[in-house]
Design a protein around this nucleic acid. Structure first.
Length: 634
DNA sequence: CGGCTTTGACCCGCGC
DNA sequence: GCGCGGGTCAAAGCCG
């Protein structure tokens, strides 16, 4: 405080003369400051309190205006002028505090300007670099033998249809979409032909990830839906009801999008990716924050429990469906399968599930594209990831037989018999592996689509299991948690890493294989979007460090994270985790809770009910069903 | 009365 | 072509 005061007063001295003349401008500045800087407000108050002495010492000749009242009481025979000064005193105090605040705001403005200019410079240099590389790529293509070029190109397009999935981070406006599409095409080629040439032998496939709302045109559009999350939708302009990526059902999409000579789309005859969440729950459906309306029920083969079909009713045009069915083996396990992506803003409480399922689906897509080459669950994961038009290729382990070819899946996965690529997030049982206590997110699928597993373990520290290529993300939880807790945490961790990834793109071209190292050397880590409690901060720091190691050493995880970020970047913009936590705290205040863990800030009220439910005591993993517990507690 | 659930019918894809 | 199973539709009923 003293430091800031003195700084502010210095500014007052230098800018005092221009203050009155610039009143409108300064008022404007002040307003913006009020909106964003609480510190400024508090400072203003403090300045006002101590303005008397400051006015005397600093204002010099004008000190009489701000002479302290104490002086007046000691001098009862004060002149009429001094009486006037007393009357003016409050106004002068305001003036001085405003001056101080103005100086502060100006200083802040300068900093922001500097920051902005730096960002613009970085952007421009990256753009130049990108265009230059595109040019090189074009030249390289032209220099090829024309005949073989044409042949190779057709083969290549088929190949890319199999191998490339462009993941949209949903940041661009819809207006420049076509141009981005073109760029994306070029980028895709670039990743294989240009700089990626020498890696092509290693790369089994490419995964393009960009900040625009588009997908590789070769890919069947019906497979693209899950890539978009609600936030990205919002940033892509108004969600169109006839958005081809949102058309339901997928079969109809296939009809409309498949053209006769489009072999590519036939090769990528994928239905919408699905994300299945297994969780213990005694209620008919799991509370995930969204509003659902049941539109059908069927007895599915092989399961005596009926399968219920729900559609999202938050928006009439929302294409998202979910299927809810009890596990035939364990009736306490509820299997919720999500399909599609919301085209509307989500309730705060729904963002965790939505972003996580979207991320999982995105990850699955990257796998699915590879699986088309004939691989199954053992398919390698490799990616040529494109962030905001900046292409960085990850190496691949596909040709390295010494390394595992897939993510870690210690638990058996749910096999699906239909053609939908499905990821299963298994939140029901602790991992039987050495990773121990925490339920793993099992990314499983039918043989047609490779499986992946993200293990958000509660192991003592975040670590990378190099044998299994599994990143251990330490979860600061005890046993009393909900699916949303896990998902929130997972998203937050992904966000931490994602921030780093995003800021590191400047060095992508310089050191494609040392993305994080370059970043760490060149950039200060951005402030975390969600300031975690201190103990979590430490854990997240460890997590980031671990993730850094992982990404620099394990391209598989890089692709996985990229896929996860596809959804989370957009969601975070809306403050999914952050605002969700706020909301949860809000609930927390209104509900008496037996929970002993409020520090995490992730507590949901239905999670609290879990701890006291006599029928379904908290499972080792703490998964429970919100609605049921709410019903019982009410 | 509006919104939601139920439930049988219907459509479609897929395998034989 | 036929049967099966998954998925959706829509009318009827229920509920607050």
């Amino acid at each position: 405080m003293p430091k800031r005061c003195s700084k502010a007063m210095e500014n007052n001295n230098t800018e005092e003369n221009s203050f009155l003349g610039n009143t409108p401008v300064e008022d404007k500045t002040k307003k913006s400051d009020d909106g964003h800087d609480e510190e400024g407000t508090s400072m203003e108050m403090e300045i006002s309190k101590s303005s008397s002495s400051m006015d005397i010492t600093i204002q010099g000749g004008h000190g009489w205006l701000a002479e302290p009242e104490q002086t007046n009481t000691l001098m009862p025979s004060s002149s009429a002028g001094k009486d006037r000064a007393l009357l003016k005193h409050p106004q002068e105090n305001e003036l001085q505090s405003a001056k101080a605040k103005m100086g502060e705001v100006k200083e802040e403005n300068e900093k922001l300007k500097l920051l902005l200019s730096q960002i613009v410079r970085n952007y421009q240099s990256l753009q130049m670099h990108f265009l230059g590389l595109l040019q090189k790529d074009e030249e390289a293509k032209k220099s090829m033998d024309p005949s073989s070029s044409a042949r190779d190109q057709s083969n290549e397009q088929d190949e890319e249809a199999d191998e490339l999935v462009s993941l949209s981070l949903g940041r661009s406006s819809s207006t420049d979409q076509p141009r981005k599409d073109e760029q994306m095409k070029k980028t895709s080629h670039f990743s294989k032909n240009g700089k990626g040439d020498d890696q092509e032998g290693l790369n089994g496939a490419g995964l393009a990830l960009e900040l625009g709302c588009r997908f590789e045109p070769a890919a069947d559009q019906s497979t693209e839906v899950v890539m978009k999350n609600s936030s990205s939708d919002n940033s892509c302009g108004d969600p169109k009801e006839d958005d081809p990526t949102e058309i339901w059902p997928p079969s109809k999409t296939l009809k409309t999008t498949r053209s006769g000579d489009d072999e590519v789309s036939q090769q990528t005859h994928l239905k919408k990716a699905r994300v299945s969440v297994r969780a213990r729950c005694d209620a008919p459906t799991m509370h995930d924050g969204c509003q659902w309306r049941k539109y059908g029920q069927k007895i599915a083969k092989g399961n005596p429990c009926p399968r219920a079909y729900y559609r999202c009713t938050v928006s009439p045009s929302c294409p998202v469906r979910k299927q809810v069915q009890r596990c035939a083996d364990d009736m306490s396990i509820l299997i919720t399968t999500y399909e599609g992506s919301h085209n509307h803003p989500l309730p705060m409480s729904a963002t965790a599930m939505a972003s996580t399922t979207s991320a999982a689906a995105s990850m699955l897509q990257s796998h699915s594209s590879i699986s088309q080459q004939g691989h199954t669950a053992m398919a390698p994961i490799s990616a040529s990831t494109n962030l905001q038009g900046l292409n960085f290729s990850t190496s691949t382990l596909s040709q390295n037989s010494r390394l595992p070819q897939h993510f870690y899946f210690p638990n058996s996965s749910i096999s699906t018999t239909n053609s939908h690529p499905t990821i299963t997030l298994d939140l029901t049982a602790p991992s039987p592996s050495h990773f121990g206590r925490f339920p793993a997110a099992v990314f499983s699928s039918n043989p047609r689509y490779p499986s992946t597993r993200l293990n958000f373990s509660s192991s003592p520290s975040s670590s990378l299991d190099h044998n299994n290529n599994t990143l251990q993300l330490q979860a600061p939880w005890n046993n009393n948690h909900t699916a949303a807790d896990y998902l929130n945490y997972g998203n937050r961790v992904l966000n931490q890493v994602g921030s780093t990834l995003n800021m590191g793109k400047q060095s992508i071209f310089q050191e494609p294989n040392n993305l994080y190292q370059s970043y760490i050397q060149n950039q200060k880590p951005p402030p975390p979007p969600l300031p975690p409690p201190p103990h979590q901060q430490l854990m997240l720091t460890e997590t980031i460090a671990s993730a850094t190691k992982t990404i620099t050493s394990n391209p598989k995880f890089q692709s996985a994270l990229a896929a996860a970020l596809t959804s989370f970047v957009g969601t975070n913009n809306g403050g999914s985790a952050t605002t969700g936590v706020r909301e949860n705290h809000h609930h927390h205040q209104h509900q008496s809770s037996t929970s002993t863990e409020s520090a995490s800030g992730l507590k949901l009220k239905w999670a609290e009910s879990l701890t006291t439910n006599p029928i379904y005591p908290p499972s080792p993993n703490g998964i429970g069903c919100a609605s049921s517990y709410l019903n019982k507690s009410s």
